[in-house]
Design a protein around this nucleic acid. Structure first.
Lengths: 144, 144
DNA sequence: ATGGTGCTGTTATACCGTAACATTATTCGT
DNA sequence: ACGAATAATGTTACGGTATAACAGCACCAT
């Protein structure tokens, strides 16, 4: 899916959810889409500053928080970064696989697994927050 | 398992692994054990400063990194914190539930989940390395 | 127009983590 | 035991990450 197509899908998605993909948020999303994998907030901030002359951290963090909350991006805690969600519309919880050799990132739908987990954890009185899981391993190309 | 007992087990564990649990590292581990759940690096740093008069961030980060690398602690990325590993010596993979409100920790058996997960990731050509799974949420006491 | 709500701008600051180099302790070959 | 190599720790300084708090603006419904 290319960027233009994704942005269009994002527009539809936000409209459906009743939230507003404002021009700032759209611009931030576009900047994230410009990268291949994990993006840092301050990279986006720098890009934003290049495009509009001035921008402060809260501006970009608020936009990123919105995009995560609405399911268009995932936060990758272990890397202090963000990735585009490749399952907009079907799942808001990702299973993010990071190849520890080449650093490439894949995303799976973690919903079925987390559903089972929630059931099990619920039995112990623990309620699991929405989140995505980051796992390390080796991708197909790196399993020499 | 109480702190004294854990420290003894940690000594044995490090000896077996051929790594050194120096007095600084042991002191840091002891400080982490003094807390109930998740501990932040700067909390430990403050404690360390109280005990030895002076200490700088690298001192505590290096000790924490060592303790994580040797399997005595786990890092909780989502909370920028650390918890004690309750399965030192067992090679089995844990599923650790961390309450993001009170910081307390619970554990579940991760085996069925990880099997499902490996199957799913394997279908995409990704082989998941052995690791602990950390999830955040709210424990029974902290659910309003 | 008025007030409420949500979004953005702005300043300032707190928190998290590491680079780089100096110094001390420990290990190891001889 | 000695000195060289290695590992651990001390120290300074800095860079990256993230949020609080308040101000202004835009939009919509009354």
């Amino acid at each position: 899916m290319d960027a233009a197509c994704f942005l269009e899908a994002a527009d539809r998605h936000c409209q459906q959810q009743g939230v507003k993909l404002t021009s700032l948020r759209r611009q931030v999303l576009e900047l994230v889409l410009g990268y291949d994998g994990v993006v840092k907030a301050y990279q986006v901030l720098a890009d934003l500053q290049r495009q509009r002359g001035i921008a402060a951290p809260p501006t970009v963090y608020r936009a990123l928080d919105f995009l995560v909350a609405s399911g268009l991006l995932h936060k990758v805690d272990a890397l202090n970064g963000y990735i585009v969600c490749r399952h907009v519309g079907c799942s808001h919880e990702g299973l993010i696989l990071v190849c520890s050799q080449c650093g490439r990132v894949q995303e799976l739908d973690a919903t079925p697994m987390l559903a089972l987990l929630r059931e099990q954890a619920g039995g112990e009185g623990f309620s699991i927050a929405p989140q995505n899981l980051l796992l390390t391993g080796h991708c197909q190309g790196c399993q020499a």
